[in-house]
Design a protein around this nucleic acid. Structure first.
Length: 424
DNA sequence: AGCACA
């Protein structure tokens, strides 16, 4: 007969004031745990929705005897412990206190753990997840992994509010099948309720849609280069072409995607948001009437990423204007950035599939964030002219450097980790 | 249905 080598039966486990509860309903909330356990003593801490199925929990009593009382009571009771009609199995935890993992400096709650049921491995790509979750705010990072329970993903947002909104909207819902291929022309409104209705309340006709977005850049205190725009808009899909031009004294840009669906997602996600923290370079997006831009492959105001780079750079030193009517003072020597944004980031642990989207280039930007404080604008002198773009990657001119060095484009910085522009 | 996201 074996004794100490036995697997951990409940009768042989070392008592602990922490109890491990399993077979809980996955919707179980802390109040239900407390309701079940408080007859036996004072509960000092709980942790619910634990495990891949979120059907486990921990309850910590103030006193060991209280935990023992509960375990022994239900060990001999004819009525099992129940929550929402489900039998709850209770045993001593193999730990002696509940640790709520809140690491300092880390904002808790801005990362969602998503379990996707009913899919085979690989049925849902990171691109799909990115599309769906970007509807609520910038998705900084995604990690996916496979467990026995199923396919899971971690989605990192800038802030708790965004994560909460996404969770409230998506919890328990289905990912539309149409999104299994993000490059298919899909209707974003398939994500029911996530987007503004295509037909307004007044029954107004649906807005004209295009794969080309027209971006007006408001409060352009900092230079917005082709590379910056590419970084921002590439988060949602392949950017084919970009053109920057001046109109009515303001700066506008055209961004061409391969299809309307990507443009729609990008438009919804970016509308009204600022490229730089503090309310600078606010984007207003609409659909362009264009569907295919005719732009110089490589100029300081335009880029055609569909043309091979050697060919494109062979055309550098353009004599004058970009195709879309704006004459620049000088031509900057810029590397066309064809690499995916993730290449600028440290890699994740091996075996973990990752996606790191360029919107992490907006440190501190939060959906629904308060307007920038006035002192920010006062502390950061704007460029003398909105047209005076410093070289990409070059240090800011003037005595003061903006908080996020917005002029440091991805391709221009050999030290991505030092670039606050891409800081987490 | 078996220990804290992997």
């Amino acid at each position: 007969m074996s004794t100490s080598a036995q697997p951990q039966f409940r009768y042989t486990q070392t008592p602990s004031k922490v109890l491990h509860l399993r077979n809980l309903p996955w919707e179980c909330i802390e109040e239900e745990l407390i309701e079940l356990c408080k007859p036996f003593g004072k509960i000092v801490n709980t942790k619910c929705n634990v495990g891949a199925n979120r059907n486990q929990a921990f309850v910590e009593f103030s006193d060991l005897n209280q935990a023992i009382n509960m375990v022994t009571y239900y060990a001999s009771s004819s009525e099992p412990a129940q929550i929402r009609g489900k039998t709850v199995y209770i045993q001593y935890s193999n730990r002696h206190e509940i640790v709520n993992n809140k690491s300092p400096g880390d904002v808790p709650g801005n990362v969602l753990l998503v379990t996707i049921e009913g899919v085979e491995a690989g049925d849902v790509s990171i691109d799909v997840i990115h599309l769906v979750f970007s509807a609520f705010g910038f998705v900084h990072k995604i990690a996916t992994f496979e467990k026995a329970a199923g396919f899971q993903a971690l989605i990192q947002y800038s802030d708790i509010q965004t994560a909460s909104t996404a969770r409230d909207s998506l919890d328990g819902r289905s990912i539309p099948r149409d999104y299994t291929n993000p490059h298919l022309p899909v209707n974003p409104t398939a994500m029911d309720g996530l987007h503004q209705p295509v037909v307004g309340p007044d029954g107004k006709k649906k807005e004209f849609e295009s794969n080309v977005l027209l971006a007006s850049i408001e409060n352009m205190q900092y230079a917005v280069t082709v590379d910056v725009l590419n970084t921002v808009f590439s988060a949602f899909g392949t950017v084919q072409k970009i053109a920057i031009f001046e109109k009515n004294g303001g700066t506008q840009a055209l961004i061409q995607y391969p299809d309307i669906a990507i443009a729609a997602v990008a438009k919804d996600a970016l509308e009204g948001h600022c490229i730089y923290d503090g309310g600078y370079c606010k984007l207003h997006l609409s659909y362009s009437r264009h569907t295919d831009l005719n732009v110089k492959a490589y100029s300081d105001k335009s880029r055609d990423y569909t043309i091979p780079m050697q060919q494109a750079t062979g055309w550098q030193n353009p004599p004058a204007a970009p195709a879309v009517g704006y004459t620049s003072g000088g031509v900057q020597q810029v590397h066309a950035q064809a690499a995916p944004s993730s290449s600028w980031f440290p890699t994740m642990p091996a075996g973990v599939q990752t996606y790191i989207s360029s919107p992490s280039s907006f440190p501190g930007q939060a959906y629904g964030a308060a307007p920038p404080p006035a002192y920010a604008a006062a502390a950061i002198p704007p460029f003398s002219s909105p047209n005076a773009h410093p070289p990409p990657g070059a240090p800011q001119t003037g005595g003061s450097v903006p908080l996020h060095q917005p002029n440091c484009p991805p391709g221009g910085s050999p030290h991505p980790s030092q670039s606050p522009y891409y800081g987490s």
